[in-house]
């Protein structure tokens, strides 16, 4: 049994999360509480890029 997932859609959502995080930081006017929490969230998003997006680049190439 294979887990059901849509690799393309996952990659897109991760990129959206990354963009949203950067945009939130940009509109927060340097509020430290936002800035530092975004840094933490961004590290988690980066881990998902390593987990999902890097693999997708390889798995979807040539499909």
């Amino acid at each position: 049994m294979k887990p059901e997932f849509d690799l393309n859609a996952m990659v897109q959502k991760i990129q959206t999360l990354k963009q949203n995080a950067a945009e939130l930081k940009a509109v927060a006017g340097g509020i430290v509480a936002v800035d530092r929490n975004i840094n933490r969230i961004s590290a988690s998003i980066r881990v998902m890029e390593l987990d999902i997006c890097d693999a997708a680049d390889i798995l979807l190439a040539g499909d």
């Binding site: 294979k2 887990p3 997932f5 690799l7 987990d51 890097d54 693999a55 390889i58 798995l59």
Partner: peptide, 24 residues
């Protein structure tokens, strides 16, 4: 059962794809 894997995408990747990932 996919629930035995933390990340089935990486953990069950075909070996030649895994090596391509390592090179990249």
């Amino acid at each position: 059962d996919p629930s035995v894997y933390w990340n089935p995408i990486l953990e069950t990747m075909p070996r030649e794809k895994l090596q391509a990932l390592q090179l990249k």
